[in-house]
Simulated scan of single mutants.
Amino acid sequence: MDKKKIYSTWFLVPAMAVFTVFFLIPLLLSLYFSLTIWNFDEVKFCGLQNFKMFFSERSLNTGVKNTMIYAVLTGGAKVVLGFLIGVFLTSSIKTKNLLRSIVFFPNLVSTIAVGITFTALMHPSKGLINKCLGLIGIQNIDWLGNTKLALFSVIGTDVWKGLGVASVIFIAGIQAIDKTYYEAAVIDGADKWKQLLYITLPLARPAMNSVIMLSFIGGMRSFDLIWAMTGGGPGYATEVVASAVYKQYAAGYYGLSTAGNVIMFLMIAVLAYPLQKFLLSREVD
């Protein structure tokens, strides 16, 4: 009995060592350096000054608001559209395997490549999107140069790229539902709409919860697509926490950028944990 207990404890050591070296120690160091003004030669303790500055500077605190908008809208769109596509691609259509490949294709393309491509497509005068809209009388929309449209343009691009993963997760979740539920519903006279509402939607909730969490956390951490398309501009219209952190680090404000990373970590932890608890509480047993 004692040997079994010793073995079970020692089996945890490799995992704990990896966790300590690659997560716990960097986290503690980040917390320390976020309270300092530092460079590669010296470190000066400044308390919470970096955090106060982060929330007092418009270029920085705007990033917090935009990050929340970005995470909620991209996550919500991926959940709704991914579920609808998942339902469609688990139906009896003959070309569903081909369509699944097409839907998943954007996820295989580099994020930077997608950003550069959509920047060209959204060019106000030469972009293909505006040329197509011009055929129906809509002229030269400045998708990325208009402060009111830029963030939503990037959000739309993010949804296009990430929709494939969400759809695949929904497809797997829907296909795992026992077919006898649908057979019983047909016997009871339930039409397709009622089957979707009372069988597919509740029983696909685990897949939906996975998509919500992945999309939300991914949206909170998003940087590469925004940087490729707008660089955080115009002005601060598409500035998010990650891009603000990068700019401060590039400018040599290492303590301030570290504080931004800590803020982003705390935002994700504080929001994601209760969200996960809430979603798990609503799953069908």
Rank of each mutant, 00 (worst) to 15 (best):
L225I: 09
S167M: 12
K96L: 07
V211R: 01
M267W: 12
F118K: 01
N66S: 08
L35I: 12
I263G: 01
G76W: 09
M220H: 03
G189I: 12
I37A: 14
I171E: 00
S8A: 11
I138W: 06
L89V: 07
C46F: 10
N66I: 14
M213S: 03
L12G: 03
E42F: 14
V109H: 03
K126R: 08
L203Y: 07
G252M: 10
L128N: 04
L280Q: 15
G233D: 04
V114C: 05
A184N: 08
M213D: 01
G86D: 06
Y32S: 09
F88Q: 07
K192S: 10
N50V: 14
S243W: 06
I69P: 00
S125P: 04
T111L: 07
I199Q: 02
V72K: 12
A237W: 00
R221S: 10
V64N: 14
G134F: 06
N97I: 12
D2P: 01
I116P: 00
A228P: 01
P26R: 13
F45S: 08
Y7H: 12
G162R: 02
T147Y: 09
I263T: 06
S153A: 15
R58M: 09
F45R: 13
S125E: 11
L29A: 15
F19L: 14
I112D: 05
A185W: 05
G260Y: 08
G260L: 11
Q276K: 10
D2R: 13
A150L: 04
G162S: 02
L73C: 14
G189K: 11
I25Q: 06
G76S: 12
T36D: 02
P274G: 08
D285T: 13
G47F: 13
P274C: 09
F278K: 15
V262Q: 10
I85R: 05
F11G: 00
F216Y: 15
W10M: 13
T36S: 08
G260W: 13
D191F: 07
S215E: 04
L12Y: 03
L99W: 13
W38S: 03
A250D: 08
P234G: 02
S222N: 10
S34A: 11
V114I: 12
L201E: 03
L256R: 07
Q248S: 04
F55S: 00
T74P: 02
D191T: 12
N66G: 05
I174Q: 04
P14N: 13
W193M: 12
S110A: 07
I171R: 00
V186D: 11
I217R: 06
K78W: 11
T20P: 00
P274I: 11
T111R: 08
T238S: 03
E183I: 12
I199P: 01
T9D: 08
T36G: 02
F105C: 06
K5T: 13
T258F: 09
K52G: 02
G219K: 05
T67F: 14
N261S: 15
S281K: 15
G47N: 15
G156M: 10
H123K: 09
I25N: 02
Y246C: 00
G218I: 10
L149A: 07
G156S: 06
R205A: 06
L99S: 04
L27Y: 14
G218W: 05
